[in-house]
């Protein structure tokens, strides 16, 4: 039995779900951003697996765009978290109920 497309897709789905659970249960904003990265990487693996299966380069190109958007997301997210935590060092995501400080 050889490695089929399904194995890669299941691994991608597993990463997506683990990342989603992490996003729901973790309370530290930094760790929540890491969980978003996990989810994005699960999707990337799915794109590349389909690109290989169908012989279509679009999958790899889309991964490039996902990468750029992920980088932008991390930059802005970390900027927000750093500026929030500078005022309240031990804040968790549950405490950030108000958009106005």
């Amino acid at each position: 039995m050889d490695v089929t497309t399904g194995w890669y897709l299941v691994l991608g789905a597993l990463l997506f779900i683990i990342g989603g659970v992490g996003l729901l249960i973790r309370r530290n904003p930094l760790v929540m951003l890491m969980c978003v990265e996990l989810m994005l990487n699960g999707v990337n693996l799915t794109f590349v697996a389909f690109s290989r299966r169908l012989g279509d380069i679009a999958g790899q190109t889309v991964v490039f765009f996902v990468l750029v958007v992920a980088a932008a997301e991390v930059v802005v997210g970390l900027g927000l978290i750093v500026s929030i935590m500078r005022r309240r060092p031990d804040v968790t995501a549950d405490d950030l109920k108000l958009l106005k400080g």
Binding site: D2, V3, T4, T5, G6, L9, V10, A13, L14, F16, I17, G20, R52, R53, G55
Partner: peptide, 20 residues
């Protein structure tokens, strides 16, 4: 729930999809 649905669907559709 999400995992069961997602993985069942993927295995059902692609378990025999050989890579070229």
């Amino acid at each position: 729930t999400l995992g069961a649905v997602l993985i069942y669907a993927l295995v059902d559709a692609f378990h025999a999809a050989e890579l070229p």
